[in-house]
């Protein structure tokens, strides 16, 4: 359910698709008339966080569930991700070694580096047995 200012999306089950999250965010951002460049940046962020949770999250037999809340307020887009996987703070992941050539780099950490680069503020918390990641990106029109 969404209007131009807020939207909530839930992905559930083993067949949950990252593509559904991207399409929902495209639709929300288009309706809210967010700048195309910002939409691209936000999609990179959503792809990374949701794919990480669904593919690498440890759910220990629970049905995977990821919730995404988008809110436009005070000149910023706030993205709040929460999931029911075991505790994992994505902000604790080290930056990749970008001073090395591509072929000599380890593949880890690339996406989370993009998440940090494309947002202005990041916060992680463990709340009520869920991982909660709150990201803010200012909207410059």
């Amino acid at each position: 359910m969404s209007d131009a200012r807020t939207a909530v999306l839930r992905l559930q089950g083993d067949d949950a698709r990252v593509g559904d999250a991207l399409d929902a965010v495209r639709s929300f951002a288009g309706e809210a008339r967010l700048p195309p460049e910002l939409i691209q940046d936000v999609l990179v962020v959503v792809d990374e966080v949701v794919a990480n949770a669904l593919r690498h999250g440890c759910f220990q037999g629970r049905e995977p569930e990821v919730e995404i809340r988008l809110a436009i307020q005070d000149g910023a887009l706030e993205l709040r991700f929460s999931d029911n996987a075991s505790p994992f703070d994505p902000l604790s992941v080290a930056d990749p070694a970008l001073d090395r050539p591509v072929e000599a780099r380890q593949s880890g950490g690339l996406g989370l580096f993009l998440v940090r680069s494309l947002t202005d503020a990041q916060r992680y918390a463990r709340e009520d047995g869920r991982n909660v990641l709150i990201l803010r990106r200012s909207i410059t029109l």
């Binding site: 999609l43 990179v44 792809d47 990374e48 794919a51 072929e103 780099r105 593949s107």
Partner: peptide
């Protein structure tokens, strides 16, 4: 649009090619 998953696929190609 390209995400980090797409980047990784292209980087893996660079690695294989340069090898």
């Amino acid at each position: 649009f390209i995400s980090s998953a797409g980047l990784r696929a292209i980087f893996a190609t660079v690695k294989r090619q340069k090898a």
